[in-house]
């Protein structure tokens, strides 16, 4: 798809990847302290509870920081592209690409919303973000 290596979901992370197939962002929330976490783990990183559920989240967030990749890491990769740490409204941060934007016009703090991309029919849907 974007030329980068692709992920291989595990039983633990499958609900996240299945959510993307339905164009939904679903992450873990702790049943005890009610906080969200990302990436998926089999315990709560905040309170060590072992009981977590999967919940859809707002899909909205902001750019905590970003970089514009100018040198392609492989022959099939088009540059420039933006890699950002996105902070969700619910708190957790994740790495992603910012798409549908001029890479040289985006800013730290900018509002973004989740989007879902599959460029090759054999591959899983990938979570990306675009300016809100």
């Amino acid at each position: 798809m974007n030329g980068h290596p692709i992920a291989e979901p595990t039983p633990l992370t499958m609900p996240f990847w299945n959510g993307l197939e339905k164009r939904q962002l679903i992450i873990q929330r702790c049943n005890t302290c009610h906080r969200y976490q990302f990436y998926p783990r089999n315990f709560c990183i905040h309170c060590e509870s072992r009981v977590l559920t999967w919940e859809p989240v707002s899909s909205r967030g902001h750019i905590y920081s970003y970089t514009i990749t100018m040198r392609a890491p492989g022959p099939d990769v088009a540059v420039p592209y933006v890699v950002a740490i996105v902070e969700l409204e619910e708190g957790p941060r994740m790495l992603s690409n910012i798409v549908d934007c001029d890479p040289f016009q985006i800013e730290v703090g900018a509002a973004v919303v989740a989007d879902f991309r599959r460029e090759n029919p054999n591959e899983s849907m990938l979570l990306v973000f675009r300016p809100a």
Partner: peptide, 13 residues
């Protein structure tokens, strides 16, 4: 590709 980095970092280049 199953590790945290493999799933949640590497696919973004």
């Amino acid at each position: 590709p199953r590790s945290p980095r493999g799933q949640f970092d590497v696919p973004y280049g």
